[in-house]
């Protein structure tokens, strides 16, 4: 078999960037996307600029992946946005935007990826949850609700896609130091971590190990699962 083909959304920065580089280093053909262009350059990397909340753009993106590679082994839905605000102070526009990117984006990408994967009866989809869900973090109503929706979506898609031998799983990082949480005060992050079994800052490599496990061909009995980094 030739190199695996891996799509990573939100690959311009943060966790998406880390994972795109990780799978390039492991010999995958990586196709990334983000709203704007990237400075990530590699012979095995191609980048598309699109908004994952735009259904037509996502369909065209995956049509391009299919045309270029003829197959798709892995989808890592790392694109996501956050808004830290009290529910009473959250505008409808913000709430909608968070759902559009996090939930609709994950849905559109997973649906289009599944269409390519089902032809070869093989696929791995990894979605992103959040510690904000089990910890029920005050000040993150919209974000936590969107991540809870991703868990439900993943659990149902895991059942629906199982006959095609496509697995769907969720990794829930705990406050990894990226732009997503740049606006959150350090003491709040620390207080959050103190509620976890492993009460320290996670390393990106530790997140990578969980995603590696979900993507492994040997993980064919692992689906509909959510792994919370550091324990809930």
């Amino acid at each position: 078999m030739s190199e695996p083909v891996t799509v990573v959304t939100g690959s311009r920065k943060g966790i998406g960037r880390f994972l795109a580089e990780r799978y390039l280093s492991l010999g995958h053909r990586v196709v990334g996307c983000s709203r704007t262009d990237t400075d990530l350059v590699s012979d095995a990397y191609e980048h598309h600029s699109l908004d994952v909340s735009h259904e037509d753009a996502v369909a065209k993106f995956f049509a391009a992946v299919r045309k270029r590679h003829g197959r798709l082994d892995h989808l890592v839905n790392a694109a996501g946005i956050a808004s830290m605000n009290h529910s009473v102070l959250t505008s409808g526009a913000t709430f909608r935007r968070i759902f559009e990117v996090n939930v609709f984006g994950t849905f559109y990408c997973s649906r289009e990826a599944a269409k390519i994967m089902q032809r070869h009866r093989y696929g791995r989809i990894v979605n992103f949850g959040s510690m904000a869900v089990p910890l029920k973090l005050a000040g993150e109503a919209a974000y936590a609700a969107s991540k809870a929706a991703i868990v439900s979506l993943s659990e149902v898609m895991a059942r629906e896609l199982a006959p095609f031998e496509i697995t769907v799983n969720v990794v829930a990082p705990n406050a990894i130091d990226t732009d997503l949480i740049a606006g959150v005060p350090a003491e709040r992050i620390e207080a959050l971590r103190q509620r976890l079994a492993i009460a320290r800052a996670p390393r990106l490599e530790e997140l990578g190990a969980i995603v590696d496990f979900f993507l492994s061909p040997s993980s064919s009995m692992v689906t509909g699962q959510t792994v919370y980094m550091g324990g809930p």
Partner: peptide, 10 residues
Amino acid sequence: LVSLLAAVEQ
């Protein structure tokens, strides 16, 4: 049906 629709789209 899922397989057919994916094939027709393609």
